[in-house]
Design a protein around this nucleic acid. Sequence first.
DNA 1: GTGAAAGCGCTAACAT
DNA 2: ATGTTAGCGCTTTCAC
Lengths: 357, 357
Amino acid sequence: MSEPKKRPTIRDVAKAAGVSVATVSRTLAGDYPVAAATRARIQRAVRDLDYVVNAHARALSGTTSKIVAIVVHDTTSPFFAHIASGVEQQATEAGRLCLVCTTHGDPDRELEIVKLMREQHADAVILVGGVFESEEYLERMSRYAHGLAEAGSKLVLCGRPSLGRDIPAITVEYDNTGGAFAATAHLLSHGHRRIAMLGGFAGLTTSEQRIQGYSDALTAYRVPVDPALVSHGELVRASGYERTSELLRQGTEFTAIFAGNDHVAAGALAALREAGKRVPEDVSVIGFDDTPFSEDLNPPLTTVHLPHQELGRTSVRMALQANGSSRQHVMLGTHIVVRDSVAAAPRPDSGRSRGRA
Amino acid sequence: MSEPKKRPTIRDVAKAAGVSVATVSRTLAGDYPVAAATRARIQRAVRDLDYVVNAHARALSGTTSKIVAIVVHDTTSPFFAHIASGVEQQATEAGRLCLVCTTHGDPDRELEIVKLMREQHADAVILVGGVFESEEYLERMSRYAHGLAEAGSKLVLCGRPSLGRDIPAITVEYDNTGGAFAATAHLLSHGHRRIAMLGGFAGLTTSEQRIQGYSDALTAYRVPVDPALVSHGELVRASGYERTSELLRQGTEFTAIFAGNDHVAAGALAALREAGKRVPEDVSVIGFDDTPFSEDLNPPLTTVHLPHQELGRTSVRMALQANGSSRQHVMLGTHIVVRDSVAAAPRPDSGRSRGRA
DNA sequence: GTGAAAGCGCTAACAT
DNA sequence: ATGTTAGCGCTTTCAC
């Protein structure tokens, strides 16, 4: 076991090139007039010694950390994965490294992570996805925002609602309510009136917005909202499966399902199939997210497309733009992707669907 | 715009608590005897000032950077996403932050990233997935390994073959060849003899191994390998779709498909369906990966399960274990998940499949 | 165009 | 148990 011979420092390079460390630093930074000959000697030394700067030393002496942090609930869900991908790409283009952390939806963990990000002096911290907007949340977020701002980091809220003028945070949202409205209206315009809504956890901002869009659409069509048709739960496949099975078991009447996201839709599809219901002949299903696998579901899923990548890229862009004030607000659009899971509502007397009353 | 009032430093805390910086440092580190009263005063000061350490300063003065880096081709593919998730979780449990970078399969980009990781003094650098094993690759990887080792980082090769004793790198593989063998044997044991292999890019380590497993199984069953049945390409859905369509168009005879991964399988399924072939009655299909959406394909896909999460976790664990030498080697197992896409080969004269000769 | 030197905020000896 | 101090490796005035 040979001594881990210490890495060369800028001083070693300076010595090897016969110049001062200042000159080496300037040459490496590239933003300063340096004689061509000197530069060449330095670059040679760098190569010979296999020198790389120490990012911590650099970050410590003033300049930026070159790090962008993104915090998500979970990295494997396509919703987060695609947003993260957008962040990563844009960060890379901006010469930044990308730190990824997960909270699994735990607010305390989120708090802890934001603290870690402050320690890292990340250039930007991007908080993604829904949260429970309690009083406590507001207060906490306000502290985050200030702490980060003082540490010189930009805070961006991605896919979660704006907090208003007094808090230094950039907001990059997608039109959640609008998307849910469109999805519901799509079903409504196909003649469906009994539409089950498989929502997310009650209280979570994203869930509430989607349910809001659902209600708004119903109201616009003068269809009363039946509480028996809306349920809350985790937006995962198993939950979609269970909630749909339960609806069927209870004998609740419905001709369409608006799933809180595509995972839930996949579960609903499976439950329906198992119960012998045909989609879309007996029951129509519409999803939310438009993740890549949606087109391979059985049948291919009609769903609402969210601009995941763009959400991520925009977040980074806003945070990093030089003259950017904190507290900007952008809202990205959504649109429906029509595939094969929605059809006209079956005639009420056709008897295939629920009870022949 | 108020002055960005500078963040408090350890010195401010020391002053506020009426102690020396050393005491503060020790208290915060927690690994040193400090009088209860003193500790309390310090913690109070920390809270009052909203102090957080500067990770760069800490990293600079000797100790570790608390960072684990993972480099993947692409973050959105479930294969990488799930491995990354395992890495992230284990890193978090070990009190590390997780840096994620993507190469999009570009070896030069990989080189660049490894350099960045050296700058960051990451505790561990985990390179994930297949590579093109050229001479150049070997040489390059050897340089990586030494550069990283000198910077005090552990290098782990995850899901790529070991490089042998002389290179300081930990290898965490899954049984790629074995998995491919099992998949092919599964088809063979169902009576299939004409099995199309939709492989990955030629030259990529992972592709070669899977094709090797395929050939080995065929050979074990004394079935000749027909080059017309094996193709190379990107392991994405579109490629699976196109290659399958092409096979059909050419009139190549086959009763089963071994897809290089589940995305390719999804594409193959779509192409088959479009061509009026039933799966598994006319053609059987087996995938590779077992990503969550596989069970929702039409029909639910029989596939080879890879221990993604475990691969990630193990990589971190090996790299971080105190007494761990560099250059260990672990191989994780795989297994077949049976669903509905494989059935007995159709009787050759049943006429449903390819040419009635 | 180049050098000298003062930190950046922290940890780890080394004292006491 | 606590304090003093010397760096860690780099950037950045300020001189020349």
